[in-house]
């Protein structure tokens, strides 16, 4: 989003504070002073991620701080995560496995690469899931873990980056 604020001390902090209050995650703050120094306002671009349903409340909160929002570009940020599944994938109905993710409404299987060595041998698949937020991705993975346990499949998940 692109914000316009008074060029006075404390304004940037005033604009940023509500973001963390509403559980948003600031990815970048781009702060460019326009060449015409005569302007007493300051344009700041903030790139952030936040749950869809909290966005309106956040916008209202920022406005209450006396900061005007010039432009709000919304993008459904897509998280992609690949996991490897091993087992009798086809015979445990891979269509159903995919459906269970797709039918959540918040995550979908974007890619599937299945390797089938021989009829009696377990197959291996790389399954890529897309979700809009990190927590939805975690929910989708939880669902997949449940499906795998139920169908006797082995899941190899990526090692998440450390919680920093």
């Amino acid at each position: 989003m692109k914000l316009e604020m008074k060029d006075s001390p404390g304004q940037l902090v005033a604009a940023l504070t509500p973001i963390s209050e509403y559980g948003g995650n600031i990815i970048a703050v781009i702060h460019q002073r326009e060449p015409d120094a005569s302007s007493d306002t300051l344009g700041v671009q903030i790139v952030l991620e936040i749950e869809q349903d909290r966005l309106d409340a956040l916008v209202a909160a920022i406005k209450r701080q006396g900061v005007s929002i010039l432009r709000l570009g919304e993008e459904r940020l897509l998280y992609r995560q690949s996991v490897i599944m091993i087992g009798h994938l086809i015979h445990t109905d891979i269509g159903d496995t995919i459906d269970r993710i797709d039918s959540t409404g918040f995550a979908e299987v974007a890619e599937l690469n299945v390797q089938m060595p021989a009829i009696a041998e377990p197959s291996t698949a790389l399954i890529t899931i897309k979700a809009t937020t990190r927590s939805e991705m975690e929910r989708a993975l939880d669902l997949l873990r449940g499906v795998a346990a139920e169908k006797g499949l082995l899941i190899v998940e990526p090692l998440a980056e450390g919680e920093r």
Partner: peptide
């Protein structure tokens, strides 16, 4: 013991590999 060569190949295609990891927090 349930890992397949295909699993390592699929990981490799993404410039990744598989290791047995212990993780605690």
């Amino acid at each position: 013991d349930g890992l397949t060569v295909d699993a390592l190949r699929l990981a490799d295609a993404q410039d990744c590999t598989i290791r047995l990891i212990g993780e605690a927090s």
